[in-house]
């Protein structure tokens, strides 16, 4: 039937087109930001502190603030997330109500918009715990936000470790914890690291939650008790208040570079996982 043939061709064309559009959009965004931002990038922009609210100077304090926030939030969320995953996969009874509750919580947390985390962090950490606008408040808020991501990926990584490894280890007289520590976690580590890197990327890009909890101070943050402005927040302020579009694009460019680098790391550890054969 000629009708079906034409229909099939049209469908193939449409599918091809949609794939093309996706690539086009990505290239347009990255291309435009590179085109607009590259002109701003030099050592001064990276190394100098912002002056006149960011209208002049560089973005050094926001880079430091971003690194501070992401590293600290990951340091809090990683043990929590991996611990949760180990509990769910290795200790909790599969049908137990508690395991169901934890999984449901993680899923719900993952679906909450980040501005809600920001509001919660603002009320709880900034005001109630009197941490003020600080790296502590920001990191704790980000940690809660990325915790489900880390849990989920760690769960999958642990689940993919063959059951035979556990049986063999236990049959050799190893305790459950020895088996987890010496066999399960080493075999799952590439997957766990991938999850952490994804979480890192999410934390770096986060604006709303950080704006409400770490503040917008342009000073160089020294201790975690200091307020800080992350690169994403800085970009938002620069663009929103019309301070300097060139600098906004310069910041955007650096964020994208950072994220691409992190994605590259995630892919690398993924391929490591497949090399080890799980």
């Amino acid at each position: 039937m000629p009708g079906t043939r034409i229909g099939e061709k049209a469908l193939t064309c449409l599918l091809y087109l949609s794939a093309l559009i996706i690539i086009g959009i990505l290239l347009a965004i990255v291309g435009y930001i590179v085109y607009k931002g590259l002109a701003m990038i030099n050592l001064d922009f990276i190394m100098q502190a912002p002056r006149r609210a960011g209208k002049e100077g560089g973005i050094s304090s926001t880079i430091v603030g971003t690194l501070y926030l992401t590293v600290l939030s990951l340091a809090i969320a990683a043990p929590l997330g991996v611990g949760t995953a180990i509990h769910l996969e290795e200790y909790a009874q599969k049908e137990s109500y508690f395991a169901y509750l934890v999984t449901l919580t993680a899923e719900t947390l993952a679906a909450i918009p980040s501005i809600i985390y920001g509001l919660f962090g603002f009320v709880f950490f900034v005001i109630y715990l009197k941490l003020g606008w600080s790296i502590w408040s920001g990191s704790l808020t980000l940690a809660i936000m990325v915790w489900p991501t880390i849990t989920r990926t760690a769960q999958e990584a642990i689940l993919s470790v063959p059951r035979e490894y556990r049986e063999n280890s236990l049959a050799l007289g190893a305790s459950k914890w020895q088996t987890i520590r010496k066999i399960v976690i080493p075999a799952a580590i590439p997957g766990i690291v991938t999850g952490m890197i994804l979480a890192l990327g999410r934390a770096i890009g986060e604006t709303a939650a950080v704006l409400l909890t770490a503040g917008t101070s342009l000073g160089m943050p020294l201790s975690p008790a200091d307020p800080a402005r992350s690169m994403s927040v800085h970009l938002y302020m620069l663009a929103m208040e019309g301070l300097s579009m060139e600098r906004a694009f310069g910041t955007a460019f650096l964020i994208i570079i950072l994220l691409l680098f992190i994605n590259y790391l995630a892919n690398r550890s993924m391929s490591l996982l497949s090399h080890n054969g799980g």
């Binding site: 049986e167 280890s169 050799l172 190893a174 054969g277 799980g278």
Partner: peptide, 26 residues
């Protein structure tokens, strides 16, 4: 009472470390 399983599940580590696993655990 040691056990050898149907499917040989060698741990993803070196030959040496596989054999040394049990003694190390103990």
């Amino acid at each position: 009472v040691g056990m050898v399983f149907q499917k040989p599940a060698v741990f993803p580590m070196s030959i040496y470390e596989n054999v040394a696993y049990g003694p190390r655990i103990h």
